[in-house]
Each structure stands twice: as C-alpha cells, then as structure tokens.
Simulated scan of single mutants.
Amino acid sequence: MLQLRPMLLTFLALIAFAGNSLLCRAALANTQIDAASFTSIRLLSGAVVLWILLALRRREHCEGGNWLSALALFVYAAGFSFAYIQLNTGIGALILFGAVQTSMIAFGLWRGERFTTAQWLGLLLACAGLVGLLLPGGAAPPLLGAVLMLAAGVAWGIYSLRGKGAVAPLQVTAGNFIRTIPMALLLSFGFVSQASLDSAGVYFALVSGAITSGVGYAIWYSALPLIKATTAATVQLSVPLLAAMGGVLLLQEPLTLRLLLASLAILGGIALVVLAVNCTPFSRKR
C-alpha cells in the first residue's frame, strides 16, 4: 500500500496531468488565444520553471535532454493544443492516453516482448475501445481533432520511451523543454497571421506550462522512486477520467454513453496488460 508521502505526491501529479487537458480546452474554447501561442507560452513557461527548479538544486547548467526527444515533446505539445480546438476535455484525454499507452505497448512487442493470453485480450479490448470512440456517428469526435490528438499521443509515447531509465529525469526534461523554445517560436511565426492573445488565455497557458507541466513533472519524478513501476503505470489510468470529470463539472461538457463505454474498454484493456506484469514474465525475449 502506498504510504502517505508518495500517495500525496502521486495524487498531485495526476491532478496536474488532468489539469493540462482542462486548461488547454478552457483556453481554446473560452478565450481568444490561438493554439500556436498557447503552445509557445506553455513550453516557454515550463522551461523557465524547470530551469529554476534545477537552479535551486544547484544544477543551473542544464546539459540533459537531446534534440530528438525535444522534437517529440514539441510535436506532442503542438498536436495537443490544436486538437483541443475541436475536442472536449474527456475525449481528448482518452484519445491521448490510449495512443500513448498503445504506442509504448506496440514498441515492446516489436522489441520481442511476449504477451500472455490475458494481455493480448487487454490490448485488443483497448484497441476496440479506441476504434469504437472514433467510428463515425453523432457522438464521434471531429476527425481532424482526433488525428491530431493521436499524433500527440504517439509523440508522447516516443518521448517517454526515449527518456525511460534516465538517471536525472528532471534535468533531462528541463533540457528538452529548453530545446523546444526555438521550435515553438517557429510555430508561432508560421501562424502569426492567426495570432490572438488575451489576458485569460495567456494566464491559462502560463499555468499549464509553469504549474501543471513544470511543477507537475517535478512532483511526478519525485513520486516515481517511491512507488512500483506497475503502480505508476496503473494509477495513470485515472488521468482521462479525472479530465472528463473536470470537463463535465467545470466546463459543462456532455458525458456521453460512447465516451463511457470507450473509457471502460480502453482503460480496462490497458489495465489488464499492465497488471498482468505482476503475475507473468512480461519481457522475455523470443
């Protein structure tokens, strides 16, 4: 059972991750800020906060990270923002989370990991839930928004895989955030004709970058050494549900039957894959 400190840290990190979806959707649906500006401000403020955190730990000379990981982080952040122009909070978070986990599981299979029957059933259930969510129909999310969020999820999966096992994850994350700054500026320049800012939108972007991204990642990396890897993977299943609840309560978004059923299939399937690791060899090579 989780002790109080890691439990509190984990809970705060999950709230921060769900908060990213809420803040982005609220900004793009209810303020005048454009997606490119939101992305740039989020990445810039996240880089500043992470740099400050490292400086407070006497690691002000950030040499972590690399350009390929930074590119994956940028693609995630940009796809995330542009997708939330069209998607509701819960649907966006569910597509993102499903794409992240599915891409990471697929990479494991490609590397030669073996699945049990239960794990294969879980993966098929998760994929079926994702397909069911995206099928055409009255409650289906807009296609462009869904594709952009899928791309964001795959990019985040790649970013996570590249950073797996990092000795100094906070320093690596700060280095990657800093490297995204020129990419973000190029994005804003490319969409300068559509640029639009207001105080509320800028505030949401700053909070998303500085608090729910920068501080949120710092809290998560503080919690990770204190909990099991399978526990860390499993508790993240709550993020789309927290985001959906926040969208319903704070943004008056509808909670559809399709979203509920897809959530059960996707999150339940991934949970089956992850939890089976406790009982079976997950990474035996062929």
Rank of each mutant, 00 (worst) to 15 (best):
R5C: 03
M7W: 13
L9H: 04
A18D: 07
G19I: 03
R25V: 00
T31H: 11
D34E: 05
D34K: 04
S37V: 02
L44P: 00
A47H: 00
W51L: 14
I52R: 00
L54K: 07
G64H: 11
G65K: 11
N66M: 11
W67C: 11
W67R: 11
L68Q: 07
V75C: 09
A83R: 02
A83E: 09
Y84N: 11
G90Y: 10
A93M: 06
L94K: 09
Q101R: 08
S103P: 04
W110I: 13
E113S: 11
F115I: 00
W120H: 13
L123Q: 06
L124R: 03
L133W: 10
L134K: 00
P141R: 03
L143W: 11
G145Y: 06
A146Y: 09
G153Y: 14
V154W: 02
A155Y: 05
W156H: 04
K164P: 00
V172P: 00
G175N: 12
S193Y: 12
Q194Y: 06
A195K: 09
D198S: 05
V202K: 08
Y203V: 15
L206C: 13
G209H: 00
I211Q: 05
G214L: 01
Y217S: 02
A218G: 09
I219H: 08
W220Y: 10
L224E: 14
L226N: 05
K228M: 12
T230G: 07
A232Q: 09
A232R: 12
A233K: 08
L237W: 06
A244S: 11
A244M: 14
M245F: 14
L250H: 05
Q252C: 02
E253R: 02
P254V: 13
L259F: 15
L261Y: 07
G269L: 01
I270M: 06
I270Q: 06
A271L: 12
L272F: 06
V273D: 04
L275G: 10
